[in-house]
Design a protein around this nucleic acid. Structure first.
Length: 298
DNA sequence: ATCCAGGTACCCA
DNA sequence: TGGGTACATGGA
């Protein structure tokens, strides 16, 4: 098959397609022998990377650049994070961050569709990534938009609203089923809600997201980061909690207590320590979690 | 088999 | 405001 080509410019490097699509920010992309297939704006996209060449099909070049955030200048961002670390502690290099960077170099925060992101992370709670992927695929196959070749997009709000809750539960969603139908119902009735968030300050958008059923601090921060690219959003899951508390124990000792730090304490610590792009730093740490946390070191 | 996972809602002091 | 608990399911 013939594919279009896009050559990454020096300012667009590094870019790593594999890490970007498999680091837990998006769940419906599938890889078969170097070629990734996924759905962007209701179209099936195929893409493969060979060094600085991207071969792709199914979308326009501008869509490719926008979706993969190719003009996000990673080198400048890592420099910003390193500067913030140095300013905060004066100790560089930071071994934890540098290790994450070496493992997950080229990771990009993509520009994911807000509704897809919201549904995905409501589904994500208290589950591991393979289970989340399965769950989202079941939902899509049963209530999603049918595309070609057996591909199904995330169900739109109305489809989920009209589906019986027990059928949604049947898609391995468990107790999350009512969260999904309640939130879908709200978005159906307020179709401009999600697009309206993009013009708000992050904290205001976050407050609105937290009103949705099944959306707490973690899910809200994932949506703010992965769909709206608010880099001050720092999702704190069990992995990030472990990495930060074990990697930067001064967070605990500084407070003078041994009790587990709160969600906000960890997120605030990251914002202060990593600076403006704390959310990006967080995703590097998450992507490198298996290298940063060993099983005998939990 | 047992533990754990990209948590949240709800209750109670 | 903060701490404890139930919750469905499946992967490792």
């Amino acid at each position: 098959m013939k594919m279009k080509k896009y050559t990454l410019q020096p300012s667009q490097m590094p870019f790593d397609l594999d890490i970007t699509l498999s680091c837990g920010q998006v769940f419906q992309w599938v890889r078969h022998e170097e070629i990734w297939t996924g759905i962007v704006k209701n179209s099936i996209i195929t893409i493969r990377q060979n060094g600085k060449t991207l071969e792709y099909d199914g979308c326009k070049e501008t869509d490719l650049i926008n979706y993969f955030n190719l003009n996000f200048e990673i080198e400048k961002v890592t420099e910003s994070i390193r500067n913030s670390i140095a300013q905060t502690t004066g100790t560089i290099p930071d071994l934890l961050f540098e290790t994450a960077l070496s493992v997950a170099q080229g990771l990009r925060i993509i520009r994911q569709d807000p509704w897809e992101c919201l549904v995905s992370f409501i589904c994500s709670q208290n589950s591991n990534i393979p289970a989340i992927t399965k769950r989202i695929n079941l939902l899509s196959q049963q209530y999603g938009n049918s595309l070609q070749d057996g591909w199904f997009g995330i169900p739109d709000p109305l489809s989920l609203t009209q589906a019986p809750v027990d059928k949604i539960r049947g898609c391995s969603t468990g107790y999350r089923a009512s969260y999904l139908t309640d939130t879908a119902s709200y978005i159906s009735e307020n179709p401009d809600f999600l697009s309206g968030l993009s013009v708000l300050e992050m904290k205001d958008a976050r407050i609105l997201l937290l009103n949705l059923s099944g959306v707490g601090p973690k899910v809200a921060d994932c949506v703010l980061l992965f769909a709206y690219n608010y880099y001050q959003a720092v999702p704190v899951d069990v992995w990030i909690r472990k990495i930060i508390t074990k990697g930067y124990p001064d967070l605990i000792f500084q407070a003078g207590s041994r009790k587990e730090p709160s969600y906000d304490q960890i997120a605030d610590y990251c914002r202060n320590y990593f600076g403006y792009y704390a959310g990006y730093a967080q995703q590097l740490l998450f992507a490198a979690r298996n290298s940063l946390i060993t099983k005998h070191n939990t």
